[in-house]
Each structure stands twice: as C-alpha cells, then as structure tokens.
C-alpha cells in the first residue's frame, strides 16, 4: 500500500489539480504583493534623479535623511499617536457596544442595534469624511453649535494644531467601532454561558461579572481586535486627507500621507520607500506581537 504512493494515477491527478488551482493566485501574489515588498526595500537604498531618470545606490542615505528630517519625525509621531488612541478607542468602544448588544435586551432589539452600530464600517471613508468635515466647521459646524449651546467656546476642530488630530480620531472611532463591536461580540458569544450563570448565582454583580469573568474569557478575541485596530491605524490616510489634508502645518499628517507626497508629488522614490520600510517594520513588530500572543493563548483554550 505504502510503496510508490506518489505515482498512483489518482495522486497524480490530485497534484495536477492542486497546482492548477493554486498557481493563478500564487503568481498574482508574487507579482502584486511579494515582489513589491522586496522591491520597496531595494528602492529605499537608491536615489532616483527625476531629470536624468538614473538611479544610484546610496546606502543608508535615505534612512539618514528621513530620520533626521523633522517632517517625517512629526509624521511618525502623529502616526504613533493615532495608532495608540485609535486602537484603544475603537477596541474600548467596541467592547462597550458588544456588551450592550449581547442579548441583554430582547433578541430582536439587540440585532437591530447591532446593525445600526455596524453600518458606518461598511460605508466608504471618503463619503463620510465629507459629512464630518461639514460637522467640524468652526462657525457653521454642527458640533460647535451644540458646544456653544451648553456654554463651551467654539473649537477650531480642523484649523487648530491641537484639535486636528482629535477630529481625525473622532471620525475614526465613529467609523470603525462597529466592526470592533461585531468581532468582540463573536468572542463574547463563544464564552460559555454556564460560567457566567454560575458567577451570577455566586452573587457577582453585573459589573463584576463583566470585569472578572467575561473580559478574561473573551480576551483572545479582544486582543485580536486590538491588533486589527493597530494595523488599521498605522496606515491611516483617507480621513486625514479629506478632513485636514495633513494640516494645519503638519499637525495631523501621517506616515502614509508623507509616503504619498514624497513618492508621487516630489518623486523622491528613495525617501518614500524608506518611509514605507519604516511602516513595514512597525507592522512587522505588531504582527510578531500578535503571533506570540496568539500562541500564548492557544494553551488556555
């Protein structure tokens, strides 16, 4: 039975089918994903001359340039700011919403609220950013209107260096918390009901049950959602581009905005690629944390 297994005709047919099925996607993957990753790393060590269209190898020059350039350092700082706050905000709001819609109310009502909270996640960021831009206007904006009604002075949401990032953050959380809710909810619903009921019988209050039982049990899922939000926030772009276009000054500019600007406005491919590699490193760190984290949690399940 064992011998010559590789050569029996049905195995051969399977092999042929296997490669027939996987080659199209793998070739596409190589050309449009894998090779670009390698190539970006190569370009980051080159200098491109717009006039002569010649490329020369320049070693670490591009990296030295971006790491000493105040604009890219500001963009890096802003990106980390967005990453931490968007990830915490989205995951936190997602968790709160998930608990609220986890069948505390009658099932139909819960499903109704789930759909509403989730809907913004499906709508294109540019479309909703146009609406929020109107909301954030200093004099004609809806938000400042309600703030002045309760006695708070008008805020330059898009025109002040302090608030430009906060406006982007608000839009991001409003847009993405529903997705986090949905994913955390899936984790909560996988939690064994029996354990929660046992805690209830033992006299744990709703808040205690939430903090001591539900959160620890759903923590692998919450961790996954957090990672997803971190990687999402690292490439933040559209919302800033519509709301503030990076300004005022560079106060809300992100790494990806700078990549697009360097690469496709000033055609400094080398610097743009070095910034891309910087982003790649950040994403790799997060991916590594996810890998280690999910391994750790496998034992608990």
């Amino acid at each position: 039975m064992q011998k010559k297994k590789k050569w029996n005709p049905s195995k051969k047919r399977e092999l042929r089918a296997a490669y027939l099925f996987t080659i199209p996607s793998f070739v596409g993957f190589l050309v449009f994903v894998f090779i670009p990753i390698i190539w970006v790393i190569i370009i980051s060590f080159q200098k491109y001359n717009v006039f002569t269209t010649a490329t020369t190898f320049v070693g670490w020059d591009n990296y030295r340039q971006i790491l000493t350039n105040s604009r890219s350092l500001v963009a890096l700082k802003n990106t980390l700011w967005y990453t931490v706050l968007c990830a915490l905000g989205n995951t936190g709001m997602g968790l709160i919403l998930a608990v609220l819609v986890d069948d505390v109310l009658p099932h139909k009502l819960s499903v109704f609220f789930r759909s509403i909270y989730f809907f913004p996640s499906l709508v294109g960021l540019t479309f909703v950013a146009i609406i929020w831009q109107a909301f954030f206007q200093t004099d004609a904006g809806v938000i400042n209107y309600y703030l002045t009604r309760i006695g708070i002075a008008k805020i330059g949401w898009l025109s002040s260096q302090t608030f430009s990032k906060i406006s982007v953050l608000i839009l991001d959380i409003w847009k993405n918390m529903g997705m986090s809710m949905l994913l955390i909810l899936a984790g909560l619903q996988n939690v064994d009901r029996g354990i929660i009921e046992a805690a209830e019988i033992d006299g744990a209050s709703a808040f205690q049950r939430f903090l001591k039982v539900i959160i620890p049990l759903a923590s692998p899922q919450i961790f996954f959602v957090m990672i997803m939000n971190v990687t999402g926030a690292l490439r933040i772009y559209e919302s800033i581009s519509v709301l503030t276009n990076g300004g005022p000054g560079d106060s809300s500019r992100s790494l990806v905005m700078l990549i697009a600007e360097k690469g496709f406005t000033s055609f400094d491919y080398g610097a743009a690629s070095a910034l891309s590699v910087l982003l790649l490193i950040l994403i790799s760190i997060v991916t590594f944390i996810q890998f280690v984290g999910s391994r750790k949690w496998v034992h608990y399940e």
């Binding site: 449009f32 990753i37 970006v40 370009i43 990549i259 891309s276």
Partner: peptide, 11 residues
Amino acid sequence: MVPVQVTIVAL
C-alpha cells in the same frame, strides 16, 4: 499583513 500603502511605490 502588509498593506498596499507600504508597497505602493514599487507597485
């Protein structure tokens, strides 16, 4: 895990 924003120059 690598988004298109990273590879855009090469792409």
